[in-house]
Design a protein around this nucleic acid. Structure first.
Lengths: 224, 224
DNA sequence: CGTCTCTTTGAAACGCGTCAATGGCTGTGG
DNA sequence: CCACAGCCATTGACGCGTTTCAAAGAGACG
């Protein structure tokens, strides 16, 4: 496990102080770490496993915002007083995370300005990510959005194997659909098409990308 | 002009210090304040007029993210070292804004932690805004997205007149289309439909909402 | 008064959502 | 060890919402 970007620029003493204040937590698959609409109590850093962040609209539609893997943090909004989570965080596999209650994280980020800056930087990174996501939803077609989503998943949390880049956590068609703003049917159709074209391999809840460049081409192609 | 949320919780002295460090700037319509991809040099607070924040994708498609009106700030990313603007800021009408170069805003936010917290809070607010925007793009139909976008514009920067709530800056069909992820044709069709239904009044680059509740109903209706 | 930008409306094509039915993998209990 | 139940995935047919393309009208501005 390498040092997460959250700790960059911090002295060993500071890192120790932060770690000492953390409360480790184990999560079973499908267990909730945060619930949309509830007070934003904790800030968390995932060490092992993956969370999925999803949002349900007033109409009841579910959207998947992103996956949070080892070294990624979640819940920066907990640093803002009296805030509530805009989305829910659910473990997709067995998970270990460090958590800091609001009071503690607030105190730490106050005492260690560099930590606050790191979280600030992380937030702006996330912001540009969400912006490009919105951009794609607004302007691109389903095949391109799906291809890009797969490439991002592979790049962010993929493990390289002889058989291609495997996405290192379970992903269902339904989840890919919620991530790209489409239906599981369309996802299924596109992925079997790509599988016969030799671009990727799929299993139940698993995806491996064989030909990233080919997918990239599918992502930028205007017409099939 | 009332105090912007950016200054909340700051002492008069602190506010004076911040204002003293600002560089006022005048913008003509269509003038650029920031350009996507360029180093994020300045943080800005709009006093008069409106900016539009828009993003162009690699494919050349243009998306409108939001409008920035009096009291709103822009460019929090300038507080992050070596960052670049993820979008462009362009004046839609005559504009006056206070601007702080990166060095200055960085120093101020370092010296005045409350200012940094305010900007942090603003960022998280923007984040949840962009998240619901993505949510809507992913799950809702064009009429609902457009109705909501109009209601938001009216709520955020609308002026109440005897003839309804007017959106206080020029907005073209094209811009509404870029805001909602559709085409100006569809926007035009929907708006003339709503105009004959008595929900709103339109002119060239102007919109006034007559019946917010009616629009709200159109926004939540599953089928027409 | 002419030009440019913004807007309207129509008709046709198509992407993709929707519904329905089937098939396969996984884990569980007899 | 086999059978069942439940979840996940596949595939087809159909219909509707939107985009696309074309062409013309209406304000605004110099």
């Amino acid at each position: 496990v390498k040092a997460p970007p959250l700790f960059s620029g911090l002295s060993a003493d500071e890192q120790r102080e932060i770690l000492a204040a953390a409360r480790p937590r184990q999560l079973k698959p499908r267990e909730w770490l945060a619930e949309q609409g509830q007070p934003a109590d904790i800030f968390a850093l995932v060490q092992v496993g993956h969370l999925k962040l999803s949002q349900v609209s007033a109409a009841g539609a579910e959207t998947l915002v992103r996956f949070v893997g080892p070294g990624d943090c979640f819940g920066a909004i907990a640093l803002v007083p009296a805030s509530r989570y805009p989305l829910s965080a659910i473990a997709v596999d067995a998970c270990r995370a460090l958590t800091w209650p609001r009071q503690v994280s607030g105190g730490l980020s106050h005492r260690i300005p560099q930590l606050k800056s790191n979280i600030f930087e992380e937030i702006t990174r996330r912001m540009t990510g969400v912006l490009t996501m919105a951009q794609e939803l607004a302007t691109e077609r389903v095949p391109q959005r799906l291809a890009r989503a797969l490439l991002r998943l592979a790049e962010h949390g993929g493990t390289v194997t002889p058989g291609g880049i495997e996405i290192s956590h379970p992903v269902t068609r339904q989840e890919l659909a919620e991530l790209t703003g489409t239906t599981l049917f369309t996802v299924s159709r596109l992925m079997s098409q790509w599988e016969t074209a030799g671009l990727l391999r799929t299993g139940r809840g698993a995806v491996a990308i064989l030909d990233p460049d080919g997918l990239e081409a599918a992502a930028s192609a205007e017409n099939e």
